[in-house]
Amino acid sequence: MTYLTRDPIVVSALIAEVAAPQCGGTCVFLGTVRDAPQDGGVTGIEYSAYEAMAVAELDRLLAEARKRWPETRLAVRHRLGLVPTEEASIGIAAAAPHRTAAFEACRYVIEEAKKRLPIWKKELRADGTALWVDPAGRPAVVGPEGTP
């Protein structure tokens, strides 16, 4: 299974991967590159990874999710390389017999992926500069919801 891709994420392919007759609920999460006009505009993000470890870590966290929600089917893609604003950097599909497990498993995978995957991003600004993003330390990447 390859979770990492340099091509655009195809949502219909993720859904097809988890589709099964016993599943009555499918939850899809997309993380997309967003502009940050207050920082002079972001045109895209360059993603890089410790690829072998990212794959190993995804194997581990998907195994955890499958143990916790045993009937849930999961598919994940994380994009690497340049991802323009508005395009998806991560796509997750979770299908389960009922919606609660689909929502919970999908949420678990994105939250753990953000904490654990050895993936880094360099923000490309409209003025031609590029900055490594530290989600914990730099206000530029704090969203309107006030998180990292």
């Binding site: 993380g31 994105i110 953000k114 904490k115 995957l117 050895p118 880094w120 991003k121 989600p135 914990a136």
Partner: peptide, 10 residues
């Protein structure tokens, strides 16, 4: 041993 900057995937 790998040294990892603060991770920023997703």
């Amino acid at each position: 041993v790998a040294f990892l900057p603060p991770v920023a995937g997703g």
